[in-house]
Amino acid sequence: MKTERLWNMSILLILTGAIISCGEPQQAEEEPADLTEIEVTQMDSPDENGFLYTLPSPLQIASIFRRSGLTFVPNLANSPKNVSNYNTKFIQKLNFGAYAADLAYSALNEQNQACIDYVQALSSLSESLWMTNVFSSVSILKRFESNMGNSDSLGYIISDFQMELDNYLEENGLSTNSLIIFTGAWIESMHLALQSVKDHPNPVLMSRLIEQKKILLDLIEILGKEEKDAELDILMAGLVKISENFSAHDIESMSTEEDLAKLSMSPEEIASLAADVADTRKFIING
């Protein structure tokens, strides 16, 4: 009798433990990692955990560059035909970003067929990355086809697509993906602008390129907190090398367009920056 009672109690204890421990993985699944969860603590210094960032959209960067005089150069962007060359998830994410930047560049320059090709390349990569919902929810291809030639409408479609992408990544706890995707977009945008500035000096566009130092430093800081792996290490080394080209420029104290206009680089400095960006881009687009 006593043994039976002990046996029953043991079963109950095991059951209790099982129920409670079953709750733990559920918590991990239900709380997407990209939601900024912070047990609030008094922030006496800006270095404490809880310091967070937003990053701009590739479309905004492309539109700033375009208004600063960046013109369309055929065959400069990553070819959509390369899409089948990307095998690892990390490289696929980087190229998803690169193609998003190329899409923005093409749309702002009313390159209709290129837009369709880039949307298809993005759609293909989204399947590899299990992000097909992003495309189906905004019917991006249909909307693109019916708004061809209207760069303003295309801009709204791309910004809707960006929001859907952000929503998807947030809901599924994929904040690291959004960082990697953004990095691919940033490198591609910088490459497109630098190749133009290198051959056709443009002080306004150059100052806008130097202004990107802030975004680059934020990226390096945020990516530096991610778990290390071989591909990320290569990317980080490339970003750090690019950042060295900006070391002489203090953009923190700048707040007006007059301040911005004072930023410049010599042809040699531009060539060095363009070469470092091109090196990192090679790692991305060569797969």
């Binding site: 990209d34 939601l35 900024t36 969860e37 912070i38 047990e39 609030v40 603590t41 008094q42 922030m43 800006p46 809880g50 310091f51 967070l52 960032y53 937003t54 990053l55 701009p56 959209s57 905004q60 700033i64 910004s159 809707d160 960006q162 929001m163 952000d166 947030e170 806008r208 202004e211 802030k214 975004i215 934020d218 700048m254 707040s255 007006t256 367009e257 301040d259 911005l260």
Partner: peptide
């Protein structure tokens, strides 16, 4: 639309607290 940030706030305690989010904007 440019970007967004979801900040989850879990309050436990009596002290007033601050969470800071950096927003880089172009001049």
């Amino acid at each position: 639309y440019d970007s967004s940030k979801i900040t989850r706030i879990k309050i436990q305690g009596q002290e007033g607290k601050t969470i800071e989010v950096e927003v880089p904007l172009f001049i």
